[in-house]
Amino acid sequence: MATQLWRTDALMRELTVGRLRTRLGREELFRVRRGIYADQVCGDDDVLRALLLRLPDGAMLARQSAARRHGFGVLREDLVHIHLPAEVWKPRLPGVVVHRSVLPVRPVYVGGLPCVPAARCAVELARAVRRLDALPVLDAALRSGVVTRDELLAEAAAHDGLRGVRQVRQLIPLADGRAECRQESQLRLILIDGRLPPPEPQLWVMDRQGIPLYRLDLGYRERRIGIEYDGLSHLNRERLGRDRERVNWLAAAGWRMRYFTDRDLYRRPHHITATIRTALG
C-alpha cells in the first residue's frame, strides 16, 4: 500500500495537538521529518517525497540524486541534491544541497519522483565534478541507455558559456557506454590524457574456436595487452582462485596483463601511463 504523507498544516485542520501526539504514541502516525508525517514507516523513496513536500513548487532531484534515479549514479551520494527555480527562496535543510540554474528545465518523473531530465543531469554533474569523475558519469549515462551521445552534445551546447562546459565538450567524444565501473572509466581517461591510444573497454578474448572466454576491463587487442582494475572483490579466496586460472590461460595465449589499484588511480597515475607505455613498446 502506498504511503500517505501529510504536511503539519493539513493534519492540524483535522486533529488537535493532543490527538496528533496520541496517534504518534500509538504509531498510527510517523514523523518523517520536520513538518511531514506518514501513515507508516517510510522507505527511501517516501523520505524523498516527504522532503519535496517541504520544498517550494518546482523542486526536483538533481545531480547525484537524479543520476541515481536515472540509472547512472556512479558517484557517492551522501547528500540529497535538489534543483529549484532561480526566482524562489532557497531553504536551508540538513543533508540537502540546493542548486539553481539560469537555464529553464521541466522535470521528468522517475518512480514517481520529479527529476532533472537525464541529459541535463549528466551534463550538469559532469560540469561540476573533477575531470577524473566526469568521464565515469558520461560513460554510465550512455551505458544506462537513457541518453544518447547526440542528446549529450545538444545539452552541452545549451550550457555554452557556463562554468565547466568546456570539460564536458572535451569528454563527450571520449565517453563509452561499454565501461562497467567508475574506476575502469578513470583508468581509460588516465591513459588517454597520457597521450596513449584509447584502450578498448570490456574487451572479449576468444579461444581457438572463436568462442568468447574472458572479458578484460580494458585492452589493446592487436598488441595482446590487457589492463584491469583490482578492487576489493579480488581479495575473496574463491575469486582469487578463478583469477589465477584466468591469468594463467591469458599468459599462455600470449596476453600481457597489467593490474592497477586505487593507489595507482588516485596517488600515482604517472605509474599507470609509464607501465602501459612500456608495454606498448
Rank of each mutant, 00 (worst) to 15 (best):
L55R: 11
F260P: 15
R244M: 12
R195S: 08
A252R: 15
S101D: 13
G281D: 10
R182I: 00
R26I: 06
L265I: 10
L162Y: 01
R120P: 00
S185I: 10
L103Y: 04
L61V: 10
Y259M: 13
A279S: 08
R19H: 08
G177M: 13
R208C: 00
R131Q: 11
E228V: 02
A141M: 07
Y214W: 09
I36Q: 01
G58D: 06
L153N: 10
V88T: 15
G145H: 10
R215M: 06
T3P: 01
L93H: 10
P199Q: 03
D207S: 07
R244S: 06
S101F: 05
G43L: 12
V105W: 01
V17A: 15
R263Q: 14
T148C: 07
P173I: 12
V165H: 09
E14V: 15
P104R: 14
A67K: 10
R163P: 00
L265W: 04
L93R: 13
Q64K: 11
A140K: 08
R68D: 11
G95I: 06
G111Y: 01
V129A: 00
I276F: 03
L265C: 09
P197D: 00
D243W: 02
R208L: 07
M60S: 04
W89C: 13
P117Y: 00
E28D: 13
R68G: 12
F30A: 06
G111K: 08
A154Q: 10
I36H: 01
L138R: 07
R7I: 12
E27G: 02
C42M: 04
T16Q: 08
Y214V: 14
C115M: 01
A118N: 05
E77M: 15
D150W: 02
A179G: 13
L125T: 15
L153K: 09
T16Y: 06
D57S: 14
L196E: 01
T16S: 15
A66E: 05
A38T: 05
D133V: 02
R21T: 12
R178P: 09
V98W: 01
G25Y: 04
F72K: 13
G219H: 03
A2F: 05
S144C: 15
D160P: 00
T261M: 07
L203A: 03
I172P: 01
S65Y: 01
I211W: 05
D160A: 15
C121I: 00
L171R: 09
P136F: 10
V102M: 14
D45P: 01
R130G: 00
Q209E: 12
P104K: 07
A50S: 06
R63G: 02
E27D: 10
L187S: 07
L203Q: 02
A119L: 03
A126K: 05
F30D: 08
R92V: 12
R100I: 14
Q183S: 15
D217W: 08
G161K: 03
